[in-house]
Amino acid sequence: MTYKFKARLSSEWLLEKPTGEILALGEVLRLLAAIDAVGHIAGACKACGLSYRHAWGILRNAEQEFGAELLETRRRQGTRLTLFGQRLLWANRRVDARLMPTLESMASELEEELGRLYPESQPHLRLHASHGFAVEGLMRLANGMHMSPLELRYRTAIEALASLDRRECDLAGFQLPVGDFELPILQRYSQWLDPSRHCLIHLAVRNTGLFVQPDNPKRIRGVADLLNPEVRFVNRQIGSSTRYLVGLMLARLGIESSQIQGYDSSEFTHMAIAAHIASGMADAGIGVETAAWRCGLAFIPLVKERYFFAVHRDSLGTPAMERLLSLMCGLQYQNYVAELVGYDATLMGQVQTLEEALGESWQALKKPATSGL
């Protein structure tokens, strides 16, 4: 079925003045983002659908309220944001990046509740996964087509796999780094993966690495440089696979996490990490290359990660799963993921057994320990 309603939730800044008057920043921030993108006010007005006079009125009023200039206009060089304007814009981007997974998940829950009100409601697929650009695109494409909706809950990999084991979801997203760190991370997941009950759908391979400022003023080259007391690090949330991967990398170098400034900080998405750094609040963080590129940051590759959906074998023949696999193998979604910076969609949509997908790592994991006697 197609829902009669599409649920969407969004965030907006509201500032309360000492008088109790409310200052809404929605139009101001949209204008600043457009000016930052096109480099002049006329183009920003067109992008925002505002008259030149009205746009200037919004900006001047905001400058008066903040007591700070938002724009710098130079002859023959267009218009750019002041440092204050840049910080304001990046603060908003951080808020959006941090809240987006929660709002999308809540919207999906609300849409599910609305769907249950209709007698013709049909079964739909439940996806639990950590936030990622390929997952985000799949959600938007699937729910924009005439197919059963894809209900999304953003979860860590372990939470998602545990939900799949309890049959609380139909697809559980998780990522594995290629190389030395694959086996220890697979060990974390193994208790919820059963080759007799589960198989894997290959989503994509993505580049994961360090985000740093474009000119890399702290001269960061790798994880060891996080020891520099002048380097401020921003981490992913407790329980996330990325945070666990960082811990493994530090342990291999003999570095205690307590030695890293900002290790106990946390953000919930790759974009939130990137926005945190781009706004000047940190010097380095770890995430996928797409987020670094979108925020204009430099990227230092560390590992490649394979992203899978774990599914129950008996769900593969269902109409809803077949429609999803058809969508994943379709040209529209394949092109979308192929255009994500740092993503490889070569194997997308392939269904594999655990043994086929995980190969030697799975065999090593299941191999009985030999006695030293």
Rank of each mutant, 00 (worst) to 15 (best):
K6Y: 06
K6T: 07
A7P: 05
S11F: 00
E12I: 00
E16W: 01
I22F: 08
L23M: 08
L25A: 15
R30S: 14
L32R: 00
I35P: 08
D36N: 05
V38G: 02
H40D: 12
H40W: 09
K46Y: 01
A47D: 05
L50H: 00
Y52M: 06
H54P: 03
L59Y: 01
N61F: 06
A62Q: 01
L70A: 13
E72K: 06
R74E: 13
R76P: 04
R80D: 14
R80W: 01
T82L: 04
R87P: 05
R87G: 03
R87T: 09
V95C: 02
V95K: 00
D96N: 06
A97T: 06
P101W: 04
E104G: 04
L114W: 00
Y118V: 13
E120D: 09
L125M: 14
H128F: 07
A129P: 02
S130F: 10
E136A: 13
L141W: 02
N143S: 07
G144C: 09
M145S: 08
M145H: 05
M147P: 04
L150N: 07
Y154W: 14
R155G: 05
T156E: 11
L161C: 15
S163K: 11
L164I: 13
L164T: 08
R166K: 15
R167M: 15
R167S: 15
L176Y: 05
Y189V: 07
S190Y: 06
P195I: 08
L203C: 12
A204W: 01
V205A: 15
R206H: 10
G209Y: 02
V212R: 00
N216H: 05
P217T: 07
K218N: 09
I220E: 01
V223L: 12
D225I: 04
P229G: 14
E230G: 12
N235C: 12
I238T: 11
L248Q: 04
M249T: 02
L250R: 01
I260L: 08
S266T: 06
A274G: 07
H276L: 15
S279E: 09
S279L: 03
S279Q: 09
M281D: 11
A282S: 10
D283G: 07
D283W: 00
A284W: 01
G285Y: 02
A292I: 03
R294K: 03
A298L: 08
A298E: 06
K304Q: 15
E305R: 08
A310M: 12
G317K: 03
E322G: 11
E322K: 13
R323A: 14
S326Q: 09
G330L: 12
G330A: 14
L331V: 12
L331T: 10
N335D: 15
Y336L: 12
A338Y: 11
V341Q: 13
V341P: 11
A345F: 05
T346D: 13
T346I: 10
L347Y: 10
Q350T: 12
V351K: 07
T353H: 15
E356D: 15
A357C: 14
L358T: 10
E360I: 12
S361L: 00
Q363V: 13
A364D: 05
A369M: 07
A369W: 01
T370S: 09
G372I: 08
